[in-house]
């Protein structure tokens, strides 16, 4: 009897927790199909005539407000997000995976300090470094370039890749690598044919996590770029117009921007959980 009660209680609690976290998401999805009038109605009502206006406005780039038409290139922001995130992850993997291997396998002077320094980039509040960085970027003509932003994004993605993948490399048995060397294969072949395939789950997890972190970044692109290179997170700001806030379009923009990471997360959940927990324990 009491165990049945407990079970019922547990279900109720889980539903409550689920609602707490999912309701805002659900409401955003609903909002994206509403007009501003429906959204601002008080009390709010879940009954309304759905409209695709918000999405059409986003895709076409024409935003009609009470004070006239505004051009918004949200699709360009979406493309920027893809370019910035993909490039950042690719660069981080190219730099971070060999570095992680070095940190895992070889004990060299200052190695631990270097690894920790890279991790410490994650501790500093971004705002602290952004203003001096802006100065550098303007001098070096990196302001408002993809190259510059991908570079700064390494602050987010590189430590992540390094520390997660390092843990996986430490788990690869040295004997297996030695066996492959003794078979007559060089160190480079051993790295690509043995070490990398065996650390693949970790590399996948690190890549996915960095992609999500890069995708969600807001502050770097806000300060260090113009709308030409800015991602969706910053692009959504454009809907706060002189004549009011376009809640419907913001909601639709959010939905569009969440879709890529959501799809990624759903299909690679196993790697993500593994990478996060293992990386946390080993790191």
């Amino acid at each position: 009897m009491s165990s049945q009660l407990l079970r019922a209680l547990r279900i109720v609690l889980m539903v409550m927790v689920g609602l707490f976290f999912l309701f805002p998401l659900l409401w955003v999805v609903l909002m994206s199909f509403m007009t501003n009038v429906d959204i601002l109605r008080s009390p709010p009502s879940p009954f309304f005539v759905p409209t695709l206006r918000n999405y059409l406005a986003l895709i076409s780039g024409h935003l009609s407000t009470s004070s006239g038409n505004v051009q918004i290139d949200y699709m360009h922001n979406l493309l920027n997000s893809v370019i910035l995130s993909v490039c950042s992850v690719v660069v981080s993997l190219i730099l971070g995976v060999p570095a992680a291997y070095a940190f895992a396998r070889y004990k060299f002077r200052g190695g631990e300090d270097m690894a920790f320094t890279l991790l410490s980039f994650r501790f500093a509040p971004p705002l602290l470094v952004l203003l001096p960085l802006l100065g550098y970027f303007q001098t070096l003509h990196l302001y408002d370039t993809y190259f510059g932003l991908v570079w700064v994004y390494q602050l987010i993605t590189l430590p992540l890749v390094l520390w997660i993948v390092r843990g996986y490399f430490e788990d690869v048995s040295e004997d297996i690598e030695l066996a492959y060397r003794l078979d007559g294969h060089g160190w480079l072949a051993t790295f690509f044919k043995i070490s990398i395939p065996l650390a693949r789950p970790g590399i996948a997890a690190a890549g996915l996590l960095s992609f999500i972190f890069a995708w969600n970044n807001f502050i770097f692109a806000l300060i260090l770029g113009s709308s030409d290179v800015q991602p969706v997170t910053v692009g959504a700001l454009a809907f706060i117009t002189a004549s009011g806030i376009e809640y419907g379009q913001i909601a639709a923009a959010l939905v569009l921007s969440v879709i890529p990471t959501l799809v990624l997360a759903i299909f690679t959940q196993r790697y993500l959980v593994e990478g996060l927990s293992l990386g946390a324990i080993k790191g």
Binding site: S173, D175, I176, L178, A179, Y180, L182, I194, L198
Partner: peptide
């Protein structure tokens, strides 16, 4: 070489 833990390529 053969190893105690086999060291096969999994």
């Amino acid at each position: 070489m053969a190893f105690q833990n086999f060291a096969l390529y999994p």
